[in-house]
Design a protein around this nucleic acid. Structure first.
Length: 563
RNA sequence: CGGGGUAUGGCGCAGCCUGGUAGCGCACCUGCUUUGGGAGCAGGGGGUCGUAGGUUCGAAUCCUGCUGCCCCGACCA
């Protein structure tokens, strides 16, 4: 491609509203343009990246036995009503009405449509297992789109859905997909980690997320230093190793005016934060409210809390009125002593002795509190987020926390959708069986953003070769003034094109500094500079995007630099 | 949804407090000079100042409504 025939649109200035580096660089390099909140156009330079990621995904899906199809972006409401998600999905589902007053939604995911296809198309167990996939635009009406294409409303996703007669077959495909995803992210050239995850609203038994490791990631991941355990913090089990000590203090009330937070409490009473507990009231499944108890320095894990039977799902915090009714005080003075509602304590909180908590009376706290002696034993459950240094749930090593960007997610759905949508098939004995299902997603556009988060410097993007918009650029110095340079650059361009290299010929009549700055910002991995200086020796200058110094090579050796 | 901020040429911003001919940098166009790391000089084009109303002789500026965009938002016992 000749740069003069392409569209290159770079900017020196960083747009004011871009927060994260990938968003800033994508805008500056002219890869994307914003149309409205959470809606982006992919400009020619950016689209090349997307197409390369798609090609890798497609190859690996095909290799793993996937078959590609494409489904409509707009879905009739009836299908979603049948699965029950028309109600459950909430405001993230963009709903539309057509001229006949029929209701539709813009698909945020395609379980319903593919299940409808499966129940119509699959008539014999001999047709299974089968794994359909598509690469297509999705729409989710996010509350707060941000970080450019990292969390946009419209985005491109590869979604695959597999159908099986048996669970064993599903497990086999789930493993195959796990391996295919590893192959995809290996080829794209990212540092990533598969982690155990909660399956969330899609439902089903087991799921695994693929995260690109980056400090700007929205998810916290826990991994073990001792083995290959890795899980989303939402899912990672917290192991309590503490054992309760014998009480030494007697319970007494202390005045704590204006103390509403744990920080204020530790300051006022000069007590270590690990001797305090916090009490959170949430709506219960049966009781109106339930008390959740965690140590002062720990954080509630909402996902874990929501999975407890006594807790109402989705997790809802008690409001001021509920708190008054249950404890006769404000939220800042809550404690478990004397409560008549169910009290569920995290393992570490249940192992505490002589602790400090709210007195259920504004302006007062209790100290020297002990379970069993001053209040009943709580129900014990895992309620908190794991933290750095926790023992690994596998028993070897300790937990470390890193941040990640979720670029892939694979689920074992089981028979959730085949039951609600009646997708059954006769087995070898002619008996109808609900199909077992798996689903597997890769965020194509998000993968591009994640790659930039992980690969950039003060000059711009540094694309991994596999997904760079162009693998190499030829930058001639003052070609307009030198027939020699022009001839050599044209010849090199032809050689590279003939060799199948995805090369950009920067034939724009620009000063060298401008050309270099543009190509570094865009992040082309390999640069070949053709100039009068070296052409006489049949040489040119090569520089890798990550290298600080250029080297002089023979023109004939240029192709060798591209591996 | 709640809180905060913001809206002036393609991009980044000043002007607003204290009402009186809309300005700067980048980008763009023309010419000359320059030419290996985002050139210099000269000239030029482009803006209903988000929108609707109000106050006023006069509104980008003051007031009110609406809209867009950005940031923050259980973490609290």
């Amino acid at each position: 491609m000749r740069a003069s025939q392409f569209h290159i649109s770079t900017s020196k200035e960083t747009p004011a509203d871009a927060e994260v580096v990938s968003h800033q660089l994508m805008l500056r390099a002219g890869l994307i343009r914003r149309l409205a909140s959470g809606l982006y156009s992919w400009m020619p330079m950016g689209l090349r990246v997307i197409r390369k990621i798609e090609a890798i995904v497609r190859e690996e899906m095909d290799r793993a036995g996937g078959v590609e199809l494409i489904m409509p972006a707009v879905h009739p409401a009836e299908l979603w009503q049948e699965s029950g998600r028309w109600q459950k999905y909430g405001p993230e589902l963009l709903r539309l009405t057509d001229r006949h007053d029929r209701e539709y939604c813009v698909g945020p995911t395609h379980e319903e449509v593919i299940t409808d296809i499966a129940r119509r198309e699959l008539r014999s167990y001999r047709q299974m297992p089968v794994n359909f996939y598509q690469i297509q635009t999705k729409f989710r009406d996010e509350i707060r789109p941000r970080f450019g294409v990292m969390r946009s409303r419209e985005f491109i996703m590869k979604d695959a859905y597999s159908f099986h007669l048996s669970e064993e077959s599903l497990l086999q495909t789930f493993d195959d997909m796990h391996n295919a995803y590893c192959a995809v992210f290996d080829r794209v050239g990212l540092e990533y980690r598969p982690v155990e995850a909660d399956s969330g609203s899609i439902g089903g038994a087991k799921s695994r997320e693929f995260h690109v490791i980056a400090d700007s990631g929205e998810d916290a991941l826990a991994y073990s230093t001792g083995d290959d355990f890795a899980a989303n913090v939402e899912k990672a089990e917290a192991i309590s190793t503490a054992t309760r000590q014998t009480p030494t203090a007697k319970m007494e009330s202390v005045d704590t005016p204006k103390v509403h937070t744990i920080d204020q409490l530790t300051e006022a009473l000069k007590v270590d934060v690990t001797k305090t507990i916090k009490t959170l009231l949430v709506k219960g499944a049966e009781a109106p409210v339930v008390a959740l108890i965690i140590r002062g320095d720990h954080q509630l894990n909402e996902i874990k809390a929501e999975h407890i039977d006594a807790v109402l799902a989705p997790l809802t915090f008690a409001d001021a009125k509920d708190i008054q009714a249950a404890a006769n005080c404000d939220a800042g003075s809550l404690g478990p002593v004397g409560l008549t509602i169910p009290v569920i304590a995290d393992g570490d909180a249940a192992a505490m002795s002589d602790f400090v908590c709210g007195a259920n009376e504004n302006g007062k706290h209790l100290q020297g509190v002990n379970w069993a002696r001053d209040l009943p034993e709580p129900i014990v459950a895992d309620l908190r987020n794991v933290v750095d240094g926790d023992p690994s749930p596998t028993g070897t090593g300790e937990i470390k926390i890193v941040r990640g960007i979720e670029v892939g997610h694979i689920f074992q759905l089981g028979t959730t959708y085949s039951e609600s949508m009646k997708a059954a098939i006769p087995d070898e004995n002619g008996e109808m069986q609900n199909m077992h299902m798996g689903c597997y997603g890769i965020g194509i556009t998000r993968t591009a953003a994640a790659a930039i988060e992980q690969n950039n410097d003060d000059k711009g993007i540094i694309w991994p070769d596999a997904i760079a918009p162009f693998t190499a650029v030829i930058s001639p110095i003052h070609m307009a003034k030198s027939e020699t340079v022009k001839a050599a650059a044209e010849a090199l361009y032809k050689t590279m094109k003939d060799a199948g290299v995805d090369v950009l010929f920067d034939d724009r009549p620009l000063r060298p500094g401008v050309m270099f700055a543009d190509m570094e910002l865009i992040g082309i991995p390999h640069r070949f500079v053709v100039s009068e200086k070296h052409i006489a020796n049949n040489q040119l200058e090569y520089k890798g995007r990550r290298e600080s110094e250029a080297e002089i090579i023979d023109i004939g050796d240029a192709l060798g630099k591209l591996g």
